[in-house]
Every structure is written in C-alpha cells, then in structure tokens.
C-alpha cells in the first residue's frame, strides 16, 4: 500500500514537473515577442555558447570522424567495400552521430552551465533582485539563453559534422590514398536532402531542449547551494534523456515524410 502511494506520488510529481516545464516553455514563447529585446545579453550568450563550445565540439567531432573511420575500415576492406567508407561515414555522421553527440556534449557543457548559473542566481536572490527592481529576469535570463542555445546548437552541429568528415578524410587519405576531391565527391554524392534537412531541423529542437531544461532547473532552483548542484545535475540528466526522445521522434517523423 505504501509502495503504491509512493509510486503515485512520484507519478504526480513527474506530471507536475512536465506541466510546469510546458508552462515555462509557453512563457518563453510569450516573452520572446515582447519588447524590449535583450539583444546584448543574447549576443553575449551566443558567444559563450557558440564560440566557447567550438573547441570542445570540434575536438570531439574530429575524434569521432577519425575513430569511426578507423574502426569501420578493416571490416569494409574485408567486404571489399572500402570505396563505400566515405558515403557510409558521411551519412551516419550527418544523420545521427553529429547531431546527437554534439547535442549531448552541449547538454553537458551548456545545459549544466545554465542550470548552475541560474540556480546560484536564484539562491543568492539575484533573480529576486531583478524582479523587485521592476525588470523582467525571465526575459533577461531565460529567453536569451534558450534562444541562444536554439540558434547556436545547429551551427555547432554543422561545424562538428564538417570537422568529423575532415577527420574521416584524414584517415582515408593516409590509409587509403583517397584524394580530397574524391572523398568529398563521394560524400556529397551519397548525401541527400533527406539526410541533410531533417537532421538540421532537429538540431534546433535539440538546442531548444538544452536551453529549456537548463533554464527551468536553474530558474526554479531550491534548497540553497546544494540545490544548485542538483539543478545542474538534473539539467544534464533530463536534457540527455529528452534529446534521445526528441531524436527518436525526429526519426519517426522523417520516416513519415520520406
């Protein structure tokens, strides 16, 4: 009986949080179009999230391209299909690996950052201070951050894809004597708009999810400094799960249309 009750409580709590988060997202869209726009803060956040994540995302992308090609190369050679490596690598990177890995890394870097920053602002009453000075902390803190992640993640993904393909090319070039021209001819020959467009569109949702969950967890952070850690942690965990769910939905939707 008590087990039933606790699980009921968990479910209710979960539903409550889903509802709150939806309301939070709704508020984001309402505030998004209301003046004044915090454009300077938006640029600052874009810079922090975009430029400052580029190194991390780039290195990861490069290594993934490299390792992915190195790992699949022997098997493809066995099959006598080494000519297919460029097209195989490009499709898997552009469709899936690039977006999801970049988004996960950004969930770790940006999502936790937002969660911790807003969380500590909440517990040190900075958000309250903004509110009592008659300014709109939601607009200044949340709208700019969610917008920044939504805009920057797709760009990071594109760059990560490009760098990963370059890493893959390096392996092909050194091990298989494949020219730059041939490699990228193969890549673009095998790529289709079906690969490119949906996977780019879904990264906007990934970015939105990262910003939304991070901001939500930070903005409603409770229980002092310990709560800040919890907020950052929950933000990463929930974002990662949400990313996979979104990815799954994206794949299904893509399948319907193509």
């Amino acid at each position: 009986m008590s087990f039933f009750r606790t699980s009921m409580q968990y479910i209710l709590k979960y539903l409550e949080e889903v509802g709150e988060m939806s309301a939070f997202a709704g508020r984001f869209f309402r505030e998004l179009f209301r003046r004044p726009f915090e454009s300077r803060e938006l640029l600052r956040q874009c810079y922090n999230m975009g430029n400052k994540s580029l190194l991390l995302v780039g290195v990861t992308g490069f290594i993934i391209g490299l390792v992915f090609t190195l790992q699949s190369r022997p098997k493809m050679l066995d099959l006598g299909a080494s000519a297919w490596i460029p097209s195989m690598v490009s499709i898997s990177i552009v469709r899936e690996i690039g977006p999801i890995i970049t988004a996960l890394i950004c969930a770790g870097r940006i999502g936790s950052g937002i969660g911790a920053e807003l969380g500590s602002m909440r517990v040190t009453e900075q958000i309250d201070a903004m509110e009592v000075s008659g300014t709109n902390p939601f607009k200044y803190l949340v709208v700019t951050r969610i917008l920044a992640t939504t805009l920057m993640i797709p760009l990071l993904v594109v760059m990560s894809d490009a760098i990963a393909l370059f890493g893959s090319f390096l392996v092909e070039n050194t091990k298989g004597d494949v020219s730059f021209r041939y490699f990228f001819d193969e890549v673009f020959l095998s790529l289709d708009f079906v690969d490119l467009i949906p996977s780019t569109l879904k990264t906007f949702f990934f970015g939105f999810a990262i910003g939304l969950v991070g901001c939500y967890r930070g903005y409603y952070c409770k229980h002092g400094t310990a709560g800040v850690g919890v907020a950052a942690n929950t933000a990463v965990v929930e974002t990662s799960m949400l990313l996979f769910v979104l990815d799954f939905i994206a794949v299904m939707v893509t399948d319907i249309f193509y």
């Binding site: 920053e117 602002m121 040190t124 900075q126 309250d128 201070a129 009592v132 000075s133 008659g134 709109n136």
Partner: peptide, 21 residues
C-alpha cells in the same frame, strides 16, 4: 503596474544580491 510600483519601492536584500557576472 507591478513593475511600475517596484521602481518606486526599493528593496535591499540580506545577501546584497549583486549580479556577480
């Protein structure tokens, strides 16, 4: 209106609550 009132009513927080960024 609330934001208008808030410009007339200052609030000094216990922990100062300066924007540390």
């Amino acid at each position: 209106e609330l934001n208008e009132i808030r410009t007339e009513v200052g609030f000094l927080f216990q922990g100062s609550a300066l924007y540390d960024s």
